[in-house]
Amino acid sequence: MSSERTPLWEVFIRSRNGLSHRHVGSIHAADSTLALQAARDVYTRRGEGLSIWVVPSNAITASDPDDKGMLFEPTASKIYRHPTFYDILDEVGHM
């Protein structure tokens, strides 16, 4: 089965104790039904998940790696955005 005719899908799994779906990898499949099956067979063999999303890879718009200076470096000097200057009350517990 040639990959140029078989679309690529990105796979997201929500783990048993997990919060949101996380990207785990990609698979080839002819359509969304087979993509879900393939994702189940490839990525949940060891009990990794309770929910699967598959998304056509070409539906994802990605940032340009060449833009990383413009997009991401300006935040490096803004440490005051990290909430590390607060004392957390004991009653709050683990955050």
């Binding site: 089965m1 078989t6 698979i27 080839h28 499949a29 099956q37 393939a38 067979d41 490839v42 063999r45």
Partner: peptide, 12 residues
């Protein structure tokens, strides 16, 4: 198998 995904599926 014809593709990696089915290789794993059939082995499963």
């Amino acid at each position: 198998a014809p593709m990696l995904e089915e290789d794993l599926a059939l082995a499963n």
